[in-house]
């Protein structure tokens, strides 16, 4: 870097790189906005075409209904569902993690538990929802059990994967330095497996919540699923769509923002990892 001209041109290069980076970020926001405008636009046009609130209410009509819902007992209903789902996932992790450990450590138990775990993944949600209703009736525990049962195989399988993949070299290093078994477990095994527990929850998140909501349709006296069924029975199309969109919006926000943020914070050390 000898001359002023060179310094200026390097400065310009750097500015260009920043500008294109900001530009691509702006372009991404634009794309998202475009997507939503397209969605709303097509919906509005269709609803105008059909011109029937019972067929397809227009966006403003649905927004009006959402406002009514918010002025009503939205948060009670909402929290009822959220608590059930959270409890369910908690149970799934509580049971699935030790199960996964056993599956990962022992070839026999890995194979033994593989069959039921795999079958559980293929069972239609209707089965879970109705069975939960038969067993629990109208109760808090029905959706909890269902969410737990659906998420648990994902957690177990991922934990088994994580346990099998614990870096042997770090264990050797710990032995060479005379670390005890409990130290190895706490400092090597657990941090290795933690991301897999999280992955199990993340991968089953959408499915578990959907089936949990279906369970509320059958066996709940409050909650999002219950509200959707109630309005379905009342043939209140705007309300059905309003609740559905609220549900979908919330799920997307949770997945896209909350889960990703939590993952990033928990696993800060991974962002610099070159390889797995």
């Amino acid at each position: 870097m000898t001359s002023v001209a060179e310094a200026v041109s390097e400065g310009q290069d750097q500015a260009n790189v920043l500008r294109t980076a900001a530009g691509s970020r702006r372009r991404r926001y634009l794309a998202v906005v475009l997507g939503w405008l397209f969605f709303l636009g097509v919906w509005w046009a269709l609803s105008a075409l059909l011109d029937s609130e019972a067929r397809l209410p227009s966006p403003p009509r649905v927004v009006e209904e959402m406002r009514t819902i918010f002025e009503g007992d939205f948060w009670t209903q909402f929290w009822a569902s959220v608590i059930r789902v959270l409890t369910g996932f908690f149970a799934a992790v509580l049971i699935g993690t030790p199960l996964g450990f056993v599956m990962g450590r022992s070839k026999y138990w890995g194979n033994f538990l593989q069959a039921p775990v795999v079958v559980a993944g293929s069972i239609p949600g209707l089965t879970y929802a109705v069975m939960a209703f038969v067993v629990f009736g109208i109760s808090f525990w029905g959706p909890v059990a269902v969410v737990g049962l659906i998420a648990m195989p994902y957690v177990a399988i991922n934990v088994a994967e994580g346990v099998r993949g614990v870096d042997r070299r770090l264990i050797d290093m710990s032995i060479a330095y005379g670390r005890s078994e409990s130290q190895v477990f706490r400092h090597v095994t657990v941090p290795s497996v933690l991301p897999f527990i999280f992955a199990g929850v993340r991968l089953s998140f959408s499915l578990a919540w959907k089936v949990g909501t279906l369970t509320e349709v059958f066996g709940a006296s409050k909650g999002i699923g219950f509200q959707i069924r109630r309005n379905y029975q009342l043939f209140n199309m705007p309300a059905v769509i309003a609740w559905v969109l609220l549900f979908v919006g919330f799920m997307l926000l949770l997945e896209r923002f909350v889960l990703v943020r939590i993952e990033r914070r928990l696993f800060r050390w991974r962002q610099w990892e070159q390889h797995q």
Partner: peptide, 25 residues
């Protein structure tokens, strides 16, 4: 005897800071 060991690859715990790695052993 108390042993120290240096490997071909550094074998640091990726989820702990450098100082924590020093303290782990």
């Amino acid at each position: 005897a108390r042993l120290g060991y240096v490997f071909q690859d550094a074998r640091l715990l990726p989820w702990r800071t450098v100082l924590d790695n020093m303290l782990y052993v």
